[in-house]
Amino acid sequence: MTNEPSLNAPRLHRQVCFAMYSASRAATAAYRPMLEELGLTYPQYLVMLVLWEEQPRSVRELGEELGLDSGTLSPLLKRLEALGLVERRRSSEDERRVEIFLTDAGAALSSDATGIPQRLADAAGLSPAELDRLRDTLGRLTAALHSSR
């Protein structure tokens, strides 16, 4: 019996899943100091990005857009509300629906965040075209894996 791994055994460095995991952790770590300047965590930043695109959004819509369940999203929204960046309101049309609105402070924060994507791109050392291709490839991969379930 030998301790040598089989030549056919999976290798960590050859796994796409590990490369994505490592890249995700590195990107989140790179974002951290930039987002600290805004007083946001990475998940809070993602919520704000969605709201800067369009508001109001229901809690359900935010969850679908971000791939988060309500147990994860609700504490995020409570914290953003405590920071004075968003406001939760019951829909006048459907009391069961909670809509999320940006406050004036939340809307103003978007101008402070405008440079963050470029700063991350600079840190990554990839051209805009390379980043676009990477994002598109990851989007296709995500869609394919979701549809294969």
Rank of each mutant, 00 (worst) to 15 (best):
S74H: 09
T72I: 12
S111R: 15
E81V: 04
S6E: 13
S24R: 15
Q15W: 06
V50H: 03
E93G: 09
S70T: 08
R89Y: 00
I116S: 03
V59C: 09
G139L: 12
Y21D: 09
R57V: 00
S111W: 10
R14G: 05
V50Q: 14
T137I: 08
A27I: 14
T2P: 01
A29Y: 02
V86F: 00
V86H: 02
R60S: 06
D136T: 10
E53K: 14
E65H: 10
L83R: 15
E93M: 14
V47D: 03
N3V: 08
L126M: 13
S92K: 15
Y31C: 11
M20C: 09
V47S: 01
L51T: 01
Y45S: 11
A113G: 03
G63I: 04
V98W: 01
A123T: 09
V50N: 04
A82Y: 07
V98C: 05
E81I: 05
F101Q: 01
Q118P: 00
E64F: 10
L134C: 06
R88K: 11
L80H: 03
A19H: 12
R32P: 02
R25K: 12
A23V: 05
R89W: 04
L62Y: 02
A23K: 07
L40W: 00
D94N: 15
A124K: 13
E36A: 15
L80M: 01
F101E: 03
L12T: 10
A105R: 15
R89N: 06
G63M: 03
M48K: 03
T114Q: 13
N8S: 12
E4W: 09
D104A: 13
L76I: 02
A26R: 12
A23C: 08
P5S: 05
H13P: 01
S6L: 14
L120A: 10
G63R: 02
P56S: 11
M20P: 01
S148E: 09
L102A: 05
H146G: 08
R11N: 07
L134Y: 04
S147N: 08
S92M: 15
L12D: 06
N8K: 12
Y21I: 05
P43D: 00
C17E: 11
L62I: 01
Q44G: 09
L7D: 13
A105L: 14
V50S: 10
L145R: 14
G39V: 06
Y31N: 04
L77I: 04
L131T: 00
T72H: 09
T142L: 14
G106S: 06
L40Y: 00
R79W: 02
A27H: 10
G106W: 07
P5A: 10
G125H: 06
P117V: 12
R14H: 11
S6T: 07
A121Q: 11
L38M: 11
V16K: 12
T72L: 09
A82V: 05
R135G: 03
T142E: 04
F18H: 07
Q55C: 10
A30N: 12
R89E: 06
D69T: 08
R32W: 07
M48R: 02
L12C: 12
P10D: 10
V16G: 05
T137V: 11
D132C: 04
R90A: 06
A9I: 03
G39M: 05
T137C: 06
T2D: 08
L38Y: 03
D132K: 15
Q118I: 06
S22P: 00
